[in-house]
Design a protein around this nucleic acid. Structure first.
Lengths: 179, 179
DNA sequence: GATTGCGACAGAATTTAATACGGCCATTAT
DNA sequence: ATAATGGCCGTATTAAATTCTGTCGCAATC
């Protein structure tokens, strides 16, 4: 008896948006989600149960979508990272393309605005496995061409950060935008 | 008395590589790292302490680099995702570029092989914040140009998967490669 | 080929943390 | 003013993490 009763959604207590303390909590948990609520409370200035309550609310509201272990790619034999741009004939042919999401080497699929249609983030064991993936892509109906960017070095790779982004002051020589 | 004694590293028991059970464990924990060792053990066919021991070993060996909450980007006011390609004058100027890793909107920094030098994954509140980031990039010495791919829709985005990638059989019409 | 050492596991015991509960305070709405 | 609400703290209870001990199987050794 938590989410709903008899299928009737309980009227939630107005999903208050994340405040400064929530951001601090997220900041701690994004670095290490294994900390105890006691330590989490200490770090953000709350008692353990209060910290727990906050985290529960963040989970309920969907701000925290889940908790996952971060796997070293090399440990699971996927040392090769690449970004693949895909050009397609129209947007309609995506369903077949979505089949690639079944492959464990595909980590991200986006449609983008720019000089290409789609963008994939893939991780493979070696260049040969990447070639196999590209071969499968070319077999997919609708795919006209691909461009691959093989990662040489990764200098930063981290999950979504809770840190707020400061506003950009328009330079003096530029006119203030309407929007 | 776990990692080392008096600064002398203990000779570890040969970091055995991940086996099938380890992969199943990683598969469970990458979906939900909050499961108890009791349930984890059930799912992979081990007793709770045995599962615990496995996870501890995976952590020690570095296969599990950490545990993190997955934050909904919209909840922290970062609904806009973009990939930014950066062209630089030579590779030497990267140190100044690395300063962008301080910005919370930058999630990934890679050097790549292809028609560009570097690739950034960034998440901002809106197009204006992205403009601000690009402005800072252009101020960075060594940066000659950028190309941005604004994500329209994300169809898949997940952490490193433990799933093994099957080998690609060379098509009949292709010669077998030397390597 | 028997033996000894080692690594992995299961079951029980213990310690620690997660979770639930009751009361207090501040803010808000009536 | 006053009642209601939401958020917090301190405590109590429950559940899980962690430790300990013994057993089993495997492999290297003699």
């Amino acid at each position: 008896m938590d989410e709903e009763t008899d299928g009737i959604p309980l009227n939630r207590p107005a999903p208050r948006d994340v405040d400064a303390i929530d951001r601090k909590i997220l900041g701690v948990l994004v670095d290490d989600a294994t900390v105890s609520y006691a330590e989490l409370g200490d770090r953000v200035g709350l008692s353990p149960p209060a910290a727990h309550e906050r985290v529960k609310r963040l989970r309920r509201s969907g701000a925290i979508r889940g908790t996952a272990v971060i796997i070293d790619p090399k440990a699971v034999k996927k040392p090769l990272l690449a970004f693949v741009h895909i050009d397609t004939r129209g947007w309609g042919k995506t369903p077949e393309l979505m089949a690639v999401s079944q492959y464990p080497e595909v980590e991200e699929i986006h449609t983008v605005a720019g000089d290409t249609c789609m963008l994939l983030k893939v991780r493979t064991e070696d260049t040969r496995a990447l070639e196999g993936l590209l071969a499968r892509l070319y077999e997919t109906p609708g795919v006209t061409s691909t461009r691959s960017y093989v990662v040489l070095s990764t200098y930063l790779e981290r999950p979504v950060q809770p840190g707020i982004t400061e506003k950009w002051p328009t330079p003096k020589h530029m006119a203030e935008p309407l929007y």
